[in-house]
Amino acid sequence: MSSLDRPDDFEARRAPLKSMTDEALHARFWELVERIVAPLIEEARTHTSPAIERAVLLRMGFSSIECKQLVDRMQQRGLLGHGAGRLVLELAKSKGMSIRDAGEALLRGEHSGEHWQALDTIIAGDTGEQP
């Protein structure tokens, strides 16, 4: 519950709006909305989530069960911010495998295994750091 309890002071608050034409009021409405939405859409542009990454793998031809397992494991390893689909694709390219084979290799492999280690090499290239 919010603690704010306020009487209906509409008559006082509306003073600056009262003289506006309908067109000006509508423009004001949408301008405010755009200002509210701008930081939200900026966050979406620059962030991702497990559901988004699962939805990417789904589009790449993995089943819902495979998507869930792959994304859970990448999340545990702190890799989601690099893009689950990208990691699978770049792994496939680096190993000369199909993307399905790359995904299946990750599903089968231990975190200490060859394929998961290869993901570290891929992301190291993004920042120039050594794995």
Binding site: E43, A44, R45, T46, H47, T48, S49, P50, I52, E53, V56, R59, M60, Q75, L80, G81, H82, G83, G85, R86, L89, I123, G125, D126, T127
Partner: peptide, 21 residues
């Protein structure tokens, strides 16, 4: 559960929103 997209982030699929290499 929401994480920032890292440099080089990508999603090799259609209909993806936002930064994508």
């Amino acid at each position: 559960t929401v994480v920032p997209r890292q440099p080089g982030y990508g999603a090799p699929v259609c209909s993806h929103f936002g930064d994508n290499s």
